[in-house]
Design a protein around this nucleic acid. Structure first.
Length: 536
RNA sequence: GACCCCGUAGCUCAGUGGUAGAGCAUCUGACUUUUAAUCAGAGGGCCGCAGGUUCGAUCCCUGCCGGGGUCACCA
């Protein structure tokens, strides 16, 4: 860091501009979309001309806004007689020879107060600062006449000039102390495309992503505490598998082969169980080349867990325990939240219902032994639009999705799907037409899927072959045969229970978010048409 | 992929077949404990893009682009 004193006009807190560099005054040469950006570039130039470095290297930040606001006591302000905080200017009230402004750091906001007669030169520099600039503050803490804990500025340092006007969100407090927002930055397209601005001006967005992060930490530490191993398996796969979905295809130049972005981790994780690990999990991105809507993003995060010597009944109670434990840590209580504000209590044991019983309840007749054509007729009767080529599994799935799923608000395990719907699950010990499988629904959303894993290689081959026939007859989501996976099962996989959880959807329920886009920092958007992209 | 809704100033939004308004933000001035600071003044817009109808389109029609929603597919 350069020492102070080259330019006598520069006072203590301001970093000195390095005059060995040639700064061009961009405000003179560049075309700007709006005069506010031009003005800020002009200010940037003026700051440099005055010897102020607008992009210095560090600041000795010793306090957060929150530490000061929660720790300050009027009867003894001495612990806060010398604080240093850093943050972004979010509001500025200039009153002639005194100015109040709020700065925002990672913990919150705090007001600062600066007087012209105390800091004449820095006060002059303050004229060149704007909402959005990042500054460092040193000073002492006091309480204003109107009661707000405030930093009396003794030194102000510019840490980063902001060259774009930020949306200015004003906060008003009503008599009850509730915060009323004015002109909140709410355009969804802009919020998702410029998430950094969204995060700056919308505190609830920041909180949502903190909850998401803590949720994942809580899941990880829960799984670690059981001694299970977190592992990594390939994202780029020569044969994709583990789910019924369309993949993204790419190409590996080195070997001149097509590769697929994974749609699931399943088949690799089960190979690790074959290899002797008795509990493995992976939290990772999956990619599915399918629709985009409130519940689906082309890339999404899933947890998959496999535990040897266990079955799906055991996994069901583990899932309950995991969710209750994570919700308690993250939300402070065993509950989840729908976007309409409904609180969904997580009370063990969760409701359990066989899939075919759930459909039977909805249609008013037993469906266990219906043929494909009878199921098709049932779909027609309930006005479910479905292709005549649909498989039996697809028909059952359609009936369930249309008639049952929307009503599953309280946590509900749906069990024992037909084997045709579950090509990687072990047959039910009491009924070979069904699989030992459960899906967990909460708030009308599927958030978990689990089974007693199929480890009979002959049965697995037959299931794959059935999938291959579906694929040949036009179902492009059906699985492809993975010979090496069958080889692994021939080597022998112990009885194993497997679980998958949709992390994004769980994050929605932890935060009450209405859309998956609200729990993914950068949801997929169609690329913006800018002048530069149009040219290229 | 189909249908519905939306696109006006940096942000949030009004509005009309006769080429535009508000609040905040910005700029100028006043103001040394303000807080949606206040007061006085000013600037700022290819009204998403391209066609069409019209003497005249931001408004009406068509297409396109972008977004949101519903459905379909999926988790």
């Amino acid at each position: 860091m350069q020492s102070i004193g080259i330019d006598t006009s520069v006072v203590g807190g301001w970093y000195i501009c390095d005059h060995r560099r040639n700064y061009t005054d961009t405000s003179m040469t560049r075309q700007f979309d709006n005069d506010q950006i031009r003005r800020r570039y002009e200010e940037l130039h003026e700051l440099r001309m005055r010897g102020v470095e607008p992009y210095p290297y560090s600041f000795d930040q010793r306090h957060t806004s929150q530490q000061i606001l929660s720790g300050y006591r009027d009867e003894d302000p001495s612990p806060f007689s010398s604080v240093s905080v850093a943050g972004r200017i979010m509001a500025m009230r200039r009153m002639g020879k005194a100015t109040f402004f709020h700065i925002q750091d990672a913990a919150g906001k705090i007001q600062c107060y600066m007087k012209a007669d105390e800091l004449p030169q820095e006060y002059e520099m303050l004229r060149l600062l704007d909402i959005g600039d990042i500054v460092g503050i040193r000073g002492f803490v006091f309480r204003t006449r109107t009661g707000e804990i405030t930093i009396h500025v003794q030194q102000l340092t510019l840490l980063c000039k902001c060259l774009h006007p930020l949306p200015v969100v004003k906060e008003e407090r009503d008599e009850q102390g509730n915060i009323i927002l004015h002109d909140a930055f709410s355009d969804k397209e802009q919020r998702y495309r410029r998430r950094y601005i969204d995060l700056i001006v919308n505190p609830h967005v920041r909180r949502t992503f903190i909850v998401r992060s803590r949720m994942i930490s809580a899941i990880r530490s829960y799984l670690d505490s059981h001694g299970w191993l977190e592992v990594e398996t390939p994202v780029l796969q020569p044969i994709y598998g583990g789910a019924t979905a369309r993949p993204f295809v790419t190409h590996l130049n080195a070997l001149d082969i097509p590769l697929y972005l994974r749609i699931a981790d399943e088949l690799y994780l089960k190979r690790l169980i074959v290899g002797g690990f008795e509990g493995v999990y992976e939290i990772s991105k999956n990619f599915r080349n399918e629709g985009i809507d409130r519940m689906h993003n082309p890339e999404f995060t899933a947890l998959e867990l496999y535990v040897a010597y266990r079955d799906y009944q055991w996994m069901m109670s583990l899932t309950e325990d995991l969710l209750v434990s994570v919700a308690e840590q993250v939300r402070g209580e065993a509950s989840l939240l729908k976007s309409d504000g409904t609180v969904i209590p997580l009370v063990r044991p969760f409701r359990r219902i066989r899939l075919l019983d759930a459909i039977a309840d909805a249609v008013g007749e037993a469906v266990d032994n219906l043929s494909e054509s009878q199921l098709f007729a049932l779909c027609k009767k309930h006005k479910i639009d479905i292709a005549p080529t649909a498989s039996k599994a697809k028909l059952i799935d359609e009936l369930f999705t249309a008639l049952v799923q929307p009503h599953l608000v309280e946590p509900t395990f749906v069990l024992d799907h037909p084997v045709e719907m579950s090509p990687l699950a072990k047959r039910h010990r009491d009924n070979p037409a069904l699989a030992e499988r459960f899906e967990l629904y909460v708030g009308g959303m599927e958030i978990a899927n689990a089974f007693s894993e199929l480890n009979d290689p002959q049965d697995q081959r037959e299931r794959f072959e059935h999938q291959a026939r579906l694929r040949a007859s036009g179902d492009d989501e059906a699985m492809v045969i993975d010979e090496d996976f069958i080889t692994a099962l021939e080597v022998g996989m112990p009885p194993t229970a497997g679980l998958g959880i949709g992390i994004d959807r769980l994050a929605m329920l932890m935060t009450g978010a209405p859309s998956i886009r609200d729990v993914i920092f950068f949801p997929l958007m169609r690329p913006e048409q800018t002048p530069s992209t149009v040219e290229s």
